[in-house]
Design a protein around this nucleic acid. Sequence first.
DNA 1: TAGATTGTTAATCGATTAACAATC
DNA 2: TAGATTGTTAATCGATTAACAATC
Lengths: 214, 214
Amino acid sequence: MKGFKIPEATVTRLSVYSRCLDLFEEKGEETVSSSDIAKQLGVTPAQVRKDLAYFGEFGTRGIGYNVNGLQKQILKILGLNKEWNVAIIGAGNLGSALFFYKGFKERGFKIAGIFDNDSRKIGRKIGDKTIIDTKYFAKYVIELKINLGIVAVPAVYAQETVDMVVKAGIKGIINFAPVSINIPDDVMLRRVDLAAQLELITFNINKEEQIHQN
Amino acid sequence: MKGFKIPEATVTRLSVYSRCLDLFEEKGEETVSSSDIAKQLGVTPAQVRKDLAYFGEFGTRGIGYNVNGLQKQILKILGLNKEWNVAIIGAGNLGSALFFYKGFKERGFKIAGIFDNDSRKIGRKIGDKTIIDTKYFAKYVIELKINLGIVAVPAVYAQETVDMVVKAGIKGIINFAPVSINIPDDVMLRRVDLAAQLELITFNINKEEQIHQN
DNA sequence: TAGATTGTTAATCGATTAACAATC
DNA sequence: TAGATTGTTAATCGATTAACAATC
């Protein structure tokens, strides 16, 4: 296939397929079929093949997909064949939590630096790193080859922090502050909205309860 | 309308509409039209009306929606008219960060208790609360009327922690550990997958770069 | 009544699934 | 060759958008 306009759902699933292939690799499997993957994840085999077909022909008819080969292809599609060096801006509880979060490393993301503008924190150690003064951010972006930013500052500082990160040339940002943020449209910004996650849950609990009342 | 089978996207948008209505309330607006909301959020007016129509007739033809009235209705749909008392299990960096996270309170969620099984943490103060021994979780669920759980423990303990939370009767859980978890199907579990968020970004940055090369 | 805006039906669009020829 | 499984096309399903009668 190899046309354009990929559904976001496809990209999300690609990431899931990749984690699934980790398991097949661990088990020492050489090849997997779309059904193997589909069964594991509770999707249809057609879905798996369709998703992959957006990007090329990775399988062999009659055989399936080579586990290692497919994993490499997916990582390449997701851009994970490159080095991604993440800066965390904000060394409070959230920033520290993200610094120690195992999930990033597992997927190849490196936490390259952690920044704060609080003089009591600057220079302090966190893990193997020293908290850097935010005012030197742009300089360290170059030095540490930072290409992703995670903004973990209080809501009131979120916009100015994002502005600074963008100005330093970073093209991908995650924001945890529960406020909406303006960015130029060549920058990818995702908000992790924890309250909205809870609200999906409360909606469903609420619905369940109403059903059981009838 | 008031039929069943609501798209998840509709529920997510409901949550967004609600935050949008906050802004109109602040500005002192009495009524809003579907276009007012749509413009603010970059969706179509038809979308807004359709989403709301799943749940009832909340507007007045020729006039629009009463801001306060619609806000109340949406909060009720989302189950936010009730009290939601959240337990955080795990008082490490992430648990502490979530404890102080402003976004929850803003949407009416109360952090009712924070738990850990590390004897060095138990009994220590965090904000206005004392860290409770996880082994008393079930007891405190009743005492503190806890009805939501946030699991912020290391990945290896995630499954057993979730089991314990479920056993205590909690029907909605957020899990931050990057592992997949088994639960009974009357329990709502959502995983906040931070690496997957980054991967959506790296995919898009990667794509952009390839476009610009051609 | 004229203008505005809803709620709902019909049309469109896009994503998922089924089916199958290609091929290992 | 027979069996398995891909890649792709066609059918189905579901969600979004457009259109419009109802009605303030």
